[in-house]
């Protein structure tokens, strides 16, 4: 059966993926790294373009996208959870 991705990962080691369609709680997210398919069950509704965790991320651990640190988790984040401004904080640009 042909698999269809509903999220994309930018680098293999990223701990978040980006939804490329609107997704609902309980849905299975499918994304591909090279030829290998991965799945994660959604805990939250995710709008097109928003991110979800594909691994458990502990508070103060980095959020990895593009293989780089894009900010720190402000609380524990579960796989399948929405990752955005409510649970991530920038490290830079805060004037401190």
């Amino acid at each position: 059966m042909k698999q269809i991705a509903n999220a994309v990962i930018m680098y293999p080691d990223d701990n978040v993926v980006t939804a490329i369609t609107d997704l609902s709680k309980g849905e299975i997210v499918k994304y591909r790294v090279s030829d290998q398919w991965f799945e994660v069950s959604l805990i939250d509704n995710i709008s097109f373009g928003h991110k979800l965790a594909v691994k458990e991320i502990k508070a103060f651990e980095p959020i990895i996208k593009y293989g780089e640190n894009i900010g720190l988790a402000t609380c524990d984040i579960s796989a399948g959870e929405h990752v955005h401004v409510h649970n991530v904080d920038s490290v830079r640009g805060k004037g401190n």
């Binding site: 780089e68 894009i70 900010g71 805060k94």
Partner: peptide
């Protein structure tokens, strides 16, 4: 002492799923 979040990423960037300036820059 300027925290430029609010302008970078902008409210529209955030609505579109961009979370931090680092993510926007990358």
């Amino acid at each position: 002492g300027i925290d430029f979040r609010g302008a970078q990423p902008s409210p529209g960037n955030i609505a579109g799923g961009l979370t931090t300036i680092e993510e926007k820059s990358l």
